[in-house]
């Protein structure tokens, strides 16, 4: 059981690291949010799952397990709020952008 939890910890930390690397490397707010949401959420969920395997059905383990769906909902909603408000604030899409249908709605 302990080895499973350690493997999950390592996977989670690696995905968190990749998410942060994406924050630095990708060109604009929108693409950065992509990497921040996906990698960091699953990385953190993996760490929480590792915590559950480590402590089993105890107070800590169950809390970690319940935190996973809560984290999923809050992080997706937060990403949506951030990306929408940054569009409304007028932050430009990067030069590589090929299509923008959202502009039509604004006009």
């Amino acid at each position: 059981m302990n080895s499973i939890s350690y493997i999950l910890f390592i996977i989670g930390a690696a995905f968190d690291l990749l998410g942060c690397l994406g924050l630095l490397r990708l060109p604009d707010v929108y693409n950065r949010l992509q990497s921040a949401t996906k990698s960091v959420t699953l990385g953190t969920c993996s760490i929480l799952l590792g915590l559950f395997f480590h402590y089993g059905f105890s107070a800590i383990g169950i809390k970690a397990l319940i935190a996973i769906p809560l984290l999923f909902f809050t992080s997706t909603v937060a990403a949506h709020a951030l990306i929408r408000s940054s569009y409304k604030a007028g932050i430009k899409l990067s030069d590589k952008t090929v299509v923008d249908h959202y502009k039509e709605l604004k006009q």
């Binding site: 995905f15 990749l18 994406g22 060109p27 693409n31 992509q34 990698s39 299509v99 249908h101």
Partner: peptide, 23 residues
């Protein structure tokens, strides 16, 4: 799958992205 996809795009030196907003 999403995570491996992001990892690929972040780590690849040429950064294969072609972003856009679609309806």
């Amino acid at each position: 799958k999403a995570n491996f996809d992001v990892a690929y795009r972040v780590l690849s030196p040429r950064m294969p992205i072609k972003p856009g907003i679609v309806k």
